[in-house]
Design a protein around this nucleic acid. Structure first.
Length: 270
DNA sequence: TCCTATGTTGTATG
DNA sequence: ACATACAACATAGG
């Protein structure tokens, strides 16, 4: 599930725990979601700490606790956050549970491509501050996109859109949505886009991020899917049709990922 | 049984 | 050093 907007949705799921103290931490230090993280220290430091605030950036979340304690979560492919009843019984894939007075804050991930990070100190850690500047920030300019595409000239544009250092938060479905709206073929080499196409790409990156955050990452307490006017609800199975033209959609591996596009709208140039 | 899966990273090759 | 392609990670569900 988790791309930019879903990550924002899941971040808010721990809001019921804001201002509350962690009474107990449940985890298995050997679980692979703790790779590269001192899980024993994490449990020690978070016990007795109060959840103060949280942020989302790209596909990552930062939870800030009292005592200069920082918890990072990446949801990987199948990760989820929930706020459960305080006495909730943990399940097989609940890898981190923060027991508070009123709620248990739970991170679960059956496939374990997700990741927990942990640091202490007066300022936010490098693994957080080094995330690329957001697509919705002023730093995300047409020129920045054009420069990046020139460097990745021979890669299919679909693969380039998945690169987090320039398109933070874009995942497989958002990349396809952006290309569909910009009428760009996913296999087109990044270096061969015309200036007009680069402008369209930039514009649709921002549009899809903004709208997805509104629809998927909005105030609802259930995950909302984008509407039928988007590629999103039509992309998952064979036989889908382009909601703009009614033409048949194609699904094929591009850049190592299943890619869905509308050949009627997205033509390979050159 | 075989295939797929909304992600990242390490490694091999050019 | 840089760009590119792909296997590997671990698990469930169709």
């Amino acid at each position: 599930m988790p791309e930019l907007a879903e990550v924002e949705f899941f971040r808010k799921r721990w809001n019921p725990g804001l201002g509350q103290t962690v009474e107990r931490v449940l985890l298995h230090p050997a679980a692979s979601v703790f790779r590269g993280c001192d899980a024993t220290l994490l449990a020690e430091k978070l016990t007795g700490a109060t959840l103060r605030s949280s942020e989302a950036a790209a596909k990552q979340m930062l939870f800030c606790f009292s005592g200069d304690t920082w918890l990072g979560i990446h949801l990987g492919m199948t990760g989820e956050l929930t706020a459960q009843p305080a006495d909730f019984a943990t399940r097989k894939h609940d890898h981190l549970v923060l027991r508070q007075r009123d709620y248990s804050l739970v991170f679960s991930d059956h496939r374990m491509f997700g990741r927990i990070q942990f640091s202490t100190g007066p300022i936010a850690p490098a693994w957080w501050t080094s995330i690329a500047t957001a697509i919705l920030s002023d730093a995300f300019t047409v020129e920045a996109v054009a420069t990046f595409l020139r460097r990745r000239a021979r890669s299919p544009i679909k693969a380039v859109l998945l690169m987090q250092e320039r398109f933070p938060g874009v995942g497989n479905w958002m990349a396809d949505e952006i290309l569909w709206r910009a009428a760009i073929h996913p296999k087109q080499p990044a270096g061969s886009l015309t200036p007009t196409q680069v402008k369209m790409l930039h514009k649709e990156c921002r549009w899809v991020c903004r709208q997805a955050l509104k629809i998927v990452g909005g105030e609802s307490d259930t995950l909302q899917d984008p509407p039928k006017t988007w590629l999103f609800p039509h992309r998952w199975e064979d036989g889908g049709r382009d909601p703009m033209t009614g033409a048949k959609l194609l699904r094929e591996q591009v850049g190592g990922r299943t890619t869905c596009w509308s050949p009627a709208r997205q033509k390979l140039l050159g």
